[in-house]
Amino acid sequence: MTVGLFIPCYIDQFYPQVGMATVKLLEKFGIDFEYPFEQTCCGQPMANSGCTSDAKKVAEKFYNEFINYDQIICPSGSCVAMIKHQYPHLLPDKDIKPLSEKTYELVEFLTEISEINQLEVSYPHKVGIHQSCHGLRELKLASATELRIDSYNKVETLLKKVKDIEIISLDRSDECCGFGGMFSTYEEAISCSMGNDRIQDHLKHQATIITGVDMSCLMHLEGLIKRQKSPLQVKHIAEILVGEQ
């Protein structure tokens, strides 16, 4: 049983510590994994801009690199949603089901597949969870507030296994942060306004850390936070789970 680890392009370049935290987690729980060095990206930036043929080539490359693993793990909800929901359309001549069924976002994998009970780490901070839209509404990592279904939240459930953590609640618990890939520059004004509203919501409830499963949303929020010289920090959930302060 071998797991293939997929580290998205922007994590590789800008947030390697998130990739390394993921590695530590997998090692900690004794998961046998490989990191194929040829990997680059899932193709989402092109697909979401409508550049389907450019996305298709990247998707094909991903498919060939990962199809032979028993399971694929990735610390990004957005990239996993891309593989699960857009690949069938991008690669119509391939049977995507086997690939999409064995691809897991990190939290999904840790809560469902490996059923982790204790994390043995402490994180004495007030943490706000940013529910990234793709993790929430595409991967269904939590119950979205629009739906009238039993409420659950895999991200929060997992975080609560961390000692001394205080998870704060928000006024708009799953409103979009305004990143949206190309949207962040195409509709810069709205994008930043949405991001600022999220930040204010976290600040209002005394969060000192914003966490989530998507570093891309957090990158956008971090950009605003740093410009405003706000004391808030962003951390990917993998960093908290390994107890990086």
Binding site: I7, Y15, Q17, V23, T185, E188, G223
Partner: peptide
């Protein structure tokens, strides 16, 4: 021309990429 940087800082590229860090690890 860089719309990202109007109200946001651009993330700093890491000193070494994940690929390099993982190789060392």
């Amino acid at each position: 021309l860089n719309k990202w940087g109007n109200q946001r800082e651009i993330p700093e590229p890491a000193k070494e990429s994940f690929k390099t860090a993982f190789k060392k690890h």
